[in-house]
Design a protein around this nucleic acid. Structure first.
Lengths: 339, 339
DNA sequence: CTGTTAGCGCTTTCAA
DNA sequence: TTGAAAGCGCTAACAG
């Protein structure tokens, strides 16, 4: 069987308490003793049992990461970044994928993270008051990605501002009839972006004296297929838009497909701009609003860990807002077209 | 503080041993007693501390999932599926993202899963003998996704056969000069697919009496950008290929871009077929070999869990090979072109 | 600087 | 069918 702390103590000729201290790098251990312990541990190929340590110390060295999806580019990127950031700090990542509405309900009812994590990251979910209350009951630090709320550590972008820049880009190109392909603002998973990106879209139009028109705002459900259907709806309008702002790149891809399938040109007949700067957007020659995904995830994780490190003395600004940037490609500017 | 098993025992008027048995659904507990315990537990909002349970029982109820990447479509899909399958069985998923070669070396040296998981899933990695030895030292069941090896539970597709079908499709369309965009078979992450897909490519050619030509096999590194560069190399050949088989859809996307950028048509001048049936391939109108990603991940996970359930009596076929299928779209067949 | 000792909150014999 | 008690392998006072 695997070596235990007692084996190491015996081998090094010290007590188990000293082994524990030496291995964890605590102060007040003579260097010669520490060296002896380290050597014994190495020889026996010893690693402490995390569960025994967790039970004894009360610290789990684990962070729960809650996501609505994992097989979407944005979330995969987020999980990737959080995992490596946590591992640097010797924390484990336990993943919770909400999936559908039933999974979400189950999660908040059973609270499977109870007694098993030191902190929680919630990615891109707008929680209800009841859900926040359930979370608060745990008494753990919670980090919010993409949303903010008083009393929580959070990192996000300014979705409304980004959307506004996207639409202003279209306006500056002379477009005045601009469609919106958005998420369902009453979506069961209650994503944050749709609300804010829609707001930015409307603000940009109003800033140019254009009154937002309900018929120009259609649902794309943040999928490629949804974007296609939405664009078909927009193209079928009596007076069709000359430009489309999609609240995500994937919906924009779908829109481009619909436009081309209809025998029209991008951007000649209809210009398209997305949001995110998905890895495939350069390939698709899609103009978009770039958001720093990995940077946001890393920033949030580091700040959450530092809060764990120092106890609960709320320091530093609890909400960090990262910048987005306009990326102009061929889908709005023909002179930049790749093909 | 959270309720402990003692609180429940007191509330229900039984011993903690009975609470433990009742809550875990063990037999030999009177139904009336069980009901009383369940009620007390519900009232106190009790859940057992997983760490205490793990320490006492030696079972961790956790599976480690090791991947070379998480932010790629294939792996995100795999993680998603494994997570939900594990959760059905009340197992936690602890994620290990190898990242680069240094991360891989660190992983096999430190073996961070030691003493913390009941089983391990290794996704799409070809391990060295030393790495397998390190894994075997753990004495845990290991599931292999995409690879197989005697003594291990595994689920995979027949990469060589799939690749052969792809190339035979091109041959059937009359192409005889067919380029290959592949992965580095000496890649540091030692992916499995490149070896086998290259083999299938060559077998198909030889089956038609065509001798594989080294100049027609170029590296695309399994990325869009790599596919672009690789295709540029192929197009610059004195006698350029009329068709390209890319070992992954993402490389195929890059190839399509390169072909169009060169002012050529797909499939008129150069036909392209990929491998995977990535979510965006329908959008890209790309012919491909579809592989059942979620099904493979789920099958492997279930079989691993069932092995955990029954102890170590090796039952059932340890290797499952799932079928791939040819999906013909506009990138090889102009009559199917979407645009 | 180091050792002793009492838990952490469960599971699991062994008896009753 | 139930209870008593002995751990599981550590950490964290508290002494020394």
């Amino acid at each position: 069987m695997a070596a235990s702390i007692e084996d190491v103590a015996r081998e090094a000729g010290v007590s188990i308490a000293t082994v524990s201290r030496a291995l964890r790098g605590l102060p007040d251990v003579a260097e010669t003793t520490r060296a002896r312990v380290l050597e014994a541990a190495a020889e026996l190929n010893y690693v402490a049992s995390p569960f025994a340590a967790r039970l004894a110390s009360g610290r789990t060295s684990t962070v729960g990461v809650v996501v609505p999806f994992v097989n979407r580019w944005f979330f995969a990127q987020v999980i990737d970044t959080i995992e490596s950031t946590l591992r640097e700090g010797a924390y484990d990542l336990v993943l919770y994928n909400l999936g559908d509405e039933a999974g979400r309900a189950r999660f908040f009812e059973e609270m499977p993270l109870r007694k098993r994590v030191d902190a929680i990251v919630i990615a891109s979910l707008v929680l209800s008051e009841a859900e926040f209350a359930a979370l608060d009951d745990l008494g753990l630090p919670v980090g919010l990605l993409g949303v903010d709320r008083p009393g929580y550590v959070s990192t996000r972008i300014d979705d409304a501002a980004g959307a506004q820049v996207a639409v202003e880009h279209l306006l500056s190109l002379g477009h005045t009839r601009i469609g919106l392909i958005g998420g369902d603002t009453s979506d069961p998973m209650r994503f944050t972006p749709p609300h804010h990106r829609q707001r930015g879209y409307r603000a940009a139009l109003e800033g140019s004296g254009i009154t937002p028109e309900p018929a120009l705002e259609v649902l794309g459900y943040f999928t490629v297929g949804g974007g296609t259907t939405a664009a078909e709806t927009l193209l079928a309008l009596p007076e069709r838009p000359t430009a489309i702002f999609a609240e995500s790149d994937e919906m924009a891809y779908g829109a481009i497909r619909a436009i081309r399938t209809a025998g029209l040109q991008v951007p000649g007949d209809v210009a398209v701009i997305g949001f995110d700067d998905h890895v495939h957007s350069e390939l698709m020659d899609l103009s978009t609003i770039r958001q720093p995904v990995a940077e946001q995830a890393r920033d949030l994780t580091l700040r959450l860990l530092s809060e764990l490190g120092r106890g609960d003395d709320e320091q530093g600004d609890p909400v960090v807002i990262m910048p987005t940037s306009l990326v102009v490609r061929g889908s709005t500017d023909p002179s930049r077209s790749v093909y």
